[in-house]
Design a protein around this nucleic acid. Structure first.
Lengths: 236, 236
DNA sequence: TAGATTGTTAATCGATTAACAATC
DNA sequence: TAGATTGTTAATCGATTAACAATC
């Protein structure tokens, strides 16, 4: 969370918080809101495809799977303006959200770990669809290094920092086994990436200025199993 | 959220809420807590491997990447008991968490959509490691149907309900393109699965008794891009 | 003007953190 | 007993929902 000076936790007026990463003044968008923005952008793409020109918070929220109140609240953090009594212009709002989410510039991604999952991610159309370019692949297995995957030659671990730099990658994906993940992560951070998406089933530590997101596929199923147990009436 | 009768939202004492799925009385565990339990189980496995017999909330929280206070609070919802002044028995706590997360019984999983991602998931070791059995695969592509993937023959879409039933699957994974996902999801729900893990980049609707979790890989990168923009000092 | 819909405020709810009495 | 550590309560914080005045 944003650093606050002691003594007066309410020193800044709402909406003028300091950005935790840069210290520069910036609009503070709640984490929960940021997490829903990509969904809104997708929903707008669906409406565009349907030829819808103007929409309302009710209609857009329906497609996005949230409540109209939540959608309006979320958009309000972006200072985005619909028109009262009218609604939102689909093309305009798409452009605004795209800008907020950085679609105006290509983001370059390095994937470390080229097993089955890493391979699937390297060719995942959902990445390129949204403006991400998989620009480098790294793996520790000598049998994999040098092979061509998704049009790229897989590089060895000692080339990791060089690949990040040469490719100007700012985002990294970790798809290695759990026990290699922290070491890989440390090296990626040292190489200067600003964000890491990890699929390794373990907790990773990153410095506060680096953004970490972790997806643990096994945990997702375990969470479903928790509810499955209850539904099946198993005791415990 | 749990259904509540009108007139008195505080009719049940805390901790005696009705289970939303079954209506039976059950200990209510907050969703945020459930989401962290798999991480605690993983952390305990790490300690076990290190030969640790007894641990403290501080040590375990460190490995799991949370605060000691949060760990203790979370465990308190399970009625789990450590010993004051001593700590937690690693083996005992592992067993308790395993039971809560349903590791005492095998969970059978059907994967719909056998593209690159579905294929990677079919062979993902993190599933079998945690007691999940991938018991069926379904795909709409005639070129894929009938082929063998991860030891299973891929079945056609019209066999979906039959596969769920024959394999006694209670959990489904959707790895289809976005436009097929809702239809597949409806059929899985009709076939009786209790939980769905979707990788399709769109909002899905399920009835309240079915548990839905959605992982959108493209959105994950977009969320990282949001922070990357700010760190890079791009305006917008 | 009348109807529709936003943007925002206030109320509610849930989750996290801090502190400490209980107790091993 | 003295020291350690839990389980729980209270305080804080953040997120969601509801309601409505502003305004197109």
């Amino acid at each position: 969370m944003a650093t606050r000076r002691e003594g007066d936790p309410r020193e800044d007026a709402p909406g003028t918080d300091r950005d935790p990463g840069t210290g520069r003044p910036g609009r503070s968008v709640p984490a929960a809101t940021v997490g829903r923005l990509p969904g809104y952008l997708r929903a707008l793409a669906v409406l565009t495809e349907r030829g819808v020109v103007t929409t309302s918070s009710g209609a857009l929220a329906q497609v996005a799977g949230v409540s109209p109140a939540q959608l309006r609240k979320d958009l309000s953090f972006l200072g985005t303006h619909g028109r009262r009594g009218v609604g939102y212009d689909v093309a305009h709002l798409s452009a605004e959200l795209g800008a907020v989410l950085g679609l105006t510039r290509e983001r370059r991604v390095v994937i470390v770990g080229v097993g089955n999952l890493g391979r699937a991610l390297a060719g995942y159309p959902g990445f390129s669809d949204r403006g991400f370019v998989v620009a480098g692949l790294v793996d520790a297995d000598p049998a994999v290094v040098g092979s061509r995957v998704a049009g790229l030659v897989v590089e060895p671990p000692d080339r990791l920092a060089a690949v990040v730099e040469e490719q100007a990658a700012t985002i990294a994906v970790i798809a290695t086994p759990a026990d290699a993940a922290q070491d890989v992560c440390d090296k990626l951070v040292a190489a200067g990436v600003s964000g890491v998406l990890s699929f390794a089933p373990r907790a990773l530590r990153v410095p506060p200025e680096v953004d970490l997101r972790a997806v643990d596929l096994g945990s997702e199923l375990q969470i479903l199993a928790f509810h499955d147990r209850r539904r099946a009436g198993e005791d415990g």
